[in-house]
Amino acid sequence: MTATWGGLTTGQKKGAFIILGILLFALLEAILHPVDPALQNLDNTFATPTLAEPLGTDQFGRSMLARMGDAVRLSMFLGLLCALTSACVGVALGVLAGWRQGLVDRVISFLVNVLLALPGLVLILLFAALAPGSLTMLYIAISLVLWVEYFRVVRALTRNAVASSQMQASRMLGFGTLYCFRRHVWPTIVTPVMTLAAFGTANSILALAAVGFVYVGLQPPTAELGLMMVELFPYYSDAPWVLAQPIIAVFLMIFALNLLAGRHRQ
């Protein structure tokens, strides 16, 4: 673990710290601030930040601290879950296709081409149409779009690793499939997969906010960052600090994850 941390660049460490800070905020809010994010108080709309309400209140007098905590938890949870799911599926199928090649490779590659024919967000929107307001459906749709990227990278790297002379030597010495995977394939794919996972998390968070923003994702009164932006936008002149909160939260999460991913993909 310490070796992994030492291998990160300064930028990646900064990214990790910001992510840690956001997670800490989300978790501490859940523990220390037990206020219902849907609880309205129409006498106290757009309250400026005070000691009791550090982030103020929104158009229905709901606690922005509670809502931001809820929304950040939702975004991070979905982002990490999607990244994990798509990484598992993408890596498993990528290794399978790159190693076995032949028919398996052709079938999965065909499937990938079908998925790539449509821009990701359009596919996510179509899935969102299947079950309006369903988080599960969004999770499936986003993961479905994301795994393709892992698959393509892992497949190419696995093909190279399997064809390498080192791996041939291992095979001839009689080492099994599992050993060869651990020794030859896994080390070449782990860094790119981690980079993709950071981008994948960022993309899931963006996708969730985007479908919320065009009003076809999760439905009110859910506290969701994209949805909060549309809901609060009409009140921008009354309460700019409230509108700024979900925007800053999305920005920080994406910025930190991009930093963590390191150098941009070429």
């Binding site: 967000l121 359009v122 929107l125 149409a129 985007a210 923003f213 065009v214 076809v216």
Partner: peptide, 25 residues
């Protein structure tokens, strides 16, 4: 393409992306 969907919805631009979001809704 993804940007078109979001930007059209934001600016009420009478295009395909706005139409898609509206149709889904």
């Amino acid at each position: 393409i993804e940007g078109i969907v979001m930007i059209e919805s934001l600016f009420s631009w009478p295009g395909i992306g706005h139409g898609l979001a509206h149709a889904i809704f």
